[in-house]
Amino acid sequence: MIPLSWYLIFAAALFSIGLFGVLARKNAVAILMGVELMLNAVNINLVAFWRYQRPDIIAGQVFAVMVFAVAAAEVAVGLALIISIYRRRNTIVADNIDMLKL
């Protein structure tokens, strides 16, 4: 059978790849994709801990459902912001969005 460690190491690797995307990508949509990968890694962890540690308490799955809802809200607002910025500045390269900088 599959030990818990496999899931945890997989989720850690997925989280690190997503982190690299967030830190290294120029395009704002690609940064959001990296955030999605990180959220999915966290979800895998939540469900794996639920299944291996306390399958009698359903809270692990409920929490994963909450993460789904928050991720959907985050993507909707993030993409709306990106489209709004593109309309005004004609760019979505994160380095060029520096209106708040003095």
Partner: peptide
């Protein structure tokens, strides 16, 4: 991107090290 890759590798190795010290790491599925 070089330091971004470095930070990611650091986070991954830190997570793996921290998890490997936990006694439930090799639990089988009940």
């Amino acid at each position: 991107w070089g330091w971004a890759a470095g930070v990611s590798l650091l986070v991954f190795s830190g997570l793996a090290w921290m998890l490997s010290r936990w006694e439930g790491f090799h639990n089988q599925m009940p």
